[in-house]
Every structure is written in C-alpha cells, then in structure tokens.
Design a protein around this nucleic acid. Structure first.
Lengths: 144, 144
DNA sequence: TATATCATTGAAGCATACTTTAAAGTCAAG
DNA sequence: CTTGACTTTAAAGTATGCTTCAATGATATA
C-alpha cells in the first residue's frame, strides 16, 4: 500500500492530479484509511500505468473513464475493452506514421539550415535552383 | 494566390483557425487585397506546412511564433532556427520511443483481452500464475 | 505534546488552442 | 444590380486538463 505522495513520486505525477483522476472516476479501486487518506494498492498502480498508456495513445480523460467503468463491470465488458485496445493500436500506428513524416520535414529543415548557416545566408536555397537537382527528395518533401 | 477558404480546404484547417494563426503572428507574410481579404502565397503555404510539422513535434503556438519571428529577422537568426529544428528532432525521437513503449503495453493488453474473451472470463489471468512461465515478457511489461 | 509535514474537500482559477458571435463589408453569378 | 455566399474584426465563449486556494483534519518525530 502506498500514500498519494509515494505514488506521485513513483510516476512523476502531482498528487493534485492523482486526486483529479480519482474524482473523475479513473481510479475506482483506490481505498481509504480510517483517517480518510487514500491507500493505493498494486492494482491501482497497474491501473495508473494503463491510464498513462491510454493518455499517450491520445485518449481523453472522459474516454479513459469509460474504460474504468468497463473494468468495474467485470467480464461482461471484455469485448468492449478488447476493441478499445485494438482501436488504440491503430491510433498509435497512425501516430507513428505521422511522426515519421514530421521527422522527414525536420530532417530536411536541419539540412536546410546547416547549409544556410555554412553559407552565411538563406539565399543559397533560393538563388540557384540547381541544388534541387542534387537533392530531388527535398522537392518531394516540400510538395508532399 | 489562394483565398482563406482554399487554404482551409487544402489543409483541412478551419478558416477561423487560419485567422487565429495569423493573429498570433504565425503567418507574418500573408498579404491582403484592396478589399482587406487575405491573400495566401505559396510561401505562406510552405509556412503552414512547417507550422503543422512543428505542432506535431509538440511545440505550442507561442513557441512557433518565436520561430516566425526568427524567420522575419532573416539571416541573423539562422543559428537559432537550426538549433530549434535540432531540438525538435530530439523531441520527436523521444516521442517515437515513448510510442513504442505505449505500443508494447497495448499489444500486451490486446493479448490479455483476446485470451480473456476466449476463456469468457478475465480470471484466466489471475487464477493460475503458470501463464507467466509461458509468456515471461508480460511480467517485464507490467513491471517496466 | 508540540509542531512541522502531510492529507482531505469543493470550488474557483488558469493555460492552451481554438470556436462562436455579431455586425459589417466584398464578391460573383444570374 | 441584386442576392447569396464569402470575408473581415474584436470580443466573448468553450473544452480540456489540470492547478490553486482555503479551511480543516491526520501523522510522525523530537
């Protein structure tokens, strides 16, 4: 069993945020001591790991709450939960594709500014179009 | 030259958002007709592509505005702009690593719910720990 | 047992990135 | 030359995800 502060430090999430998640129904199994203090179990730690994962996959608090509700419903919601993770898989695959394209443009811009800096002026990229003959992929990049 | 509507449809960005970007200083070169209507040039289209890229790399409007300011300053800011894109490169590399870890947990959860659904109950994953002997990577996943 | 640190709550506040509204002017087809 | 669709603005509003506040109670250590 862990205090809210221990969990906070474990995840690098502010205690206020953990209380917010609890209030929003994302942590339905967090227990309480007689004093009213929250008691986080290993199960709650697991749940938090999944919450972090779902957040990184692009889900909103509301959508994660739906998942938490399904968890509470037990085996009747197994299908929904499977479908949710399958959808998340697709979403993350798309995000990865997007990031690759983003990286391509960034790589081009790094090259663009490296050569411009070496030349002392950005004009090297507009004055003679011949550079594109040497690096045709840049044109493709800029057209996408 | 393009109207705001044409650019909006070109990028799938609402015209209101384009006006917002303009107001925030992200599109410093957008011209105007005599009527006051915005005129987007190919240069502005390029800028928008870069803005989209920087957004996807995790930059805020404020930070992108800084970049737009550097662009306006000309060659004196070449170093800053190069460093910015180099930083973006690192940021996107980190995001990719994060996404991979996220995907690992999602893949585990897909397997978890596929087998649970096949068994008709989630209990297959708690009743006999022997499953972990067959799939030790799952333990690693859950511990990370 | 004092006291510093930690926890609780509901409610209000905040930052970001838009989005909507309202009133007014422009454009283009018939 | 009208009419309907498009554009302009400033300002207010919205959604999301926290974060802060203020008042109050719990815990731990010297």
């Amino acid at each position: 069993m862990y205090t809210i502060r221990e969990v906070s430090e474990m995840f690098g999430i502010p205690a206020t945020t953990l209380r917010y998640y609890d209030k929003e129904g994302l942590l339905p199994y967090v227990g309480r001591k007689d004093s009213g203090y929250r008691e986080f179990s290993d199960h709650d730690i697991q749940m938090l790991r999944v919450i972090e994962c779902l957040k990184k996959s692009g889900m909103s608090i509301k959508e994660i709450r739906q998942f938490a509700d399904w968890v509470q419903m037990g085996d009747v919601s197994l299908k929904e939960r499977l479908e949710m993770f399958q959808n998340r898989k697709r979403a993350v695959e798309q995000q990865m594709e997007e990031l690759k394209k983003t990286m391509d443009l960034i790589d081009y811009k790094c090259w663009y500014y490296e050569t411009a800096l070496a030349a002392g002026t950005e004009a090297v990229h507009s004055q003679n179009k011949s550079e594109h003959d040497r690096t045709p992929e840049c044109e493709i990049l800029l057209k996408q």
